[in-house]
C-alpha cells in the first residue's frame, strides 16, 4: 500500500487511533509477564504487601536461591530436556517416513492410507481406552509412556506432505529415476536437503508440545524421578497454601507463605525461559507452519 499519498485528516486520526490501540494491546499482553519477572526479583515483603507494580522492589535473589536448592526442579528440567529432544527426533523421523510416501503420486494405496490417517483426526478412542492400551503395553511409569504414544501427529504429517508435494517438482524425480536413483536415495539425497524449512517448522511444533506437556505425565507416571518440569511445576503452582498446623509461629508462617508465593514467580520465569529465549529467533518458522497448515494440497 502506498503511504506516499497524502493522508486525509480522517485517515490520520484513524492511524493515530490504530497506533494507540496497538500500544494498549501490547501493554496488556506484556504487563502480566513483566509483573511476574519483576516480582520474582523482589523481596518477599514487597510482593506480599503489593508494592511491586512494574519494576522490582527491594531487589533480591532469594526466590532464585530457593529454586536452585530445589533438587526436584533440576531433575524435572533434565527430564523435560530428555523428553523434548528424544521425542522430537522420533517425531521428525516418523513424520517424514509417513509424509514422503504419501506425497508421491505413484505410491499406490495412498488414498486409502490418507483416509485411515485423517479419520483419526475426527474420531478417537478417547482417554480411557488409550490409557488402558498404554497400561497393557507395560509402559506405565516408564519414560516411553511420554514418547511412544505421541510419536507422530497426523496434522504435521499432512502439512509436511503438502510441503513435499508443492516444492519437489515431479521432473526432478523423473530425471533422478532415469539415472537409476532409488526412492530411498532420492529421499535422503534430494528431498531432505530441500526440506530444511518444513523440518524446522514441525520440529518446533513438536518440541514446544513436548516441553509444555503435563497431562500425559500426570496420568502415566508415578515415579517422581521421571516427572517432567511441567508436572513438578503443576504440583507447586496449583498447591494452594502450606498447612498452617505444620508451622506454629504466626510470623514464621507469614514469611513461609510469602516465600512460597515468591518461589512461584521465580519458577514461572525459570521454566518459561528456554522457550521465550529461543522464540524470537524461530518465530517466523511458526508463522510459516500456520501458513502451510492452511493450504490444501
Amino acid at each position: 500500500m502506498n503511504s506516499n499519498i497524502r493522508e486525509s485528516k480522517g485517515d490520520r486520526i484513524f492511524l493515530i487511533c490504530n497506533y494507540v490501540f496497538l500500544c494498549i494491546l501490547l501493554i496488556a499482553v506484556l504487563y502480566p509477564l513483566i509483573y511476574v519477572l519483576s516480582a520474582s526479583f523482589s523481596s518477599t515483603k514487597a510482593v506480599t504487601s503489593g508494592r511491586v507494580w512494574l519494576w522490582p522492589v527491594d531487589f533480591s535473589l532469594t526466590a532464585y536461591k530457593e529454586v536452585f536448592n530445589y533438587a526436584l526442579i533440576w531433575k524435572g528440567y533434565a527430564n523435560s530436556i530428555f523428553y523434548t529432544v528424544v521425542g522430537t527426533l522420533i517425531n521428525i523421523a516418523l513424520t517424514i517416513m509417513a509424509a514422503y510416501p504419501l506425497s508421491r503420486k505413484d505410491f499406490k494405496g495412498k488414498n486409502l492410507f490418507m483416509l485411515l490417517f485423517v479419520f483419526t483426526m475426527i474420531f478417537n478412542g478417547g482417554l480411557i481406552p488409550t490409557y488402558l492400551l498404554v497400561k497393557d503395553l507395560g509402559m506405565l511409569d516408564t519414560r516411553w509412556a511420554l514418547i511412544i504414544p505421541n510419536a507422530m501427529s497426523v496434522f504435521n504429517v499432512i502439512i509436511t506432505r503438502t510441503y513435499f508435494k508443492t516444492t519437489i517438482p515431479d521432473e526432478l524425480l523423473e530425471s533422478a529415476q532415469l539415472d537409476g536413483c532409488t526412492d530411498m536415495k532420492f529421499l535422503t539425497r534430494i528431498v531432505l536437503p530441500l526440506s530444511g524449512p518444513i523440518i524446522a517448522v514441525i520440529a518446533l511444533f513438536y518440541a514446544v508440545g513436548h516441553w509444555n506437556e503435563y497431562f500425559d505425565a500426570l496420568i502415566y507416571l508415578r515415579d517422581q524421578n521421571l516427572f517432567p518440569l511441567q508436572l513438578i511445576l503443576k504440583n507447586i503452582l496449583a498447591q494452594s497454601e502450606i498447612d498452617p498446623s505444620m508451622i506454629g509461629d504466626i510470623a514464621m508462617l507469614q514469611s513461609r507463605i510469602g516465600l512460597t508465593e515468591l518461589l512461584k514467580y521465580a519458577l514461572i520465569v525459570v521454566s518459561s525461559l528456554p522457550v521465550l529465549i529461543i522464540y524470537p529467533f524461530v518465530q517466523r518458522h511458526f508463522v510459516k507452519g500456520v501458513m502451510i497448515g492452511s493450504l490444501k494440497e
Binding site: L25, L26, V29, L30, P32, L33, V36, V208, W211, N212, Y214, Q230, L231, L233, K234, L237, A238, K264, L267, I268, S271, S272, V275, L276, Y279, Q283, F286, V287
Partner: peptide, 16 residues
C-alpha cells in the same frame, strides 16, 4: 509480542 504468549505452557498460564 502478541504471538509470544501462545508458547507459554498451560501450567504456567494457570500459575500466573
Amino acid at each position: 509480542i502478541t504471538y509470544a504468549p501462545h508458547f507459554i505452557s498451560v501450567v504456567v498460564i494457570v500459575g500466573i
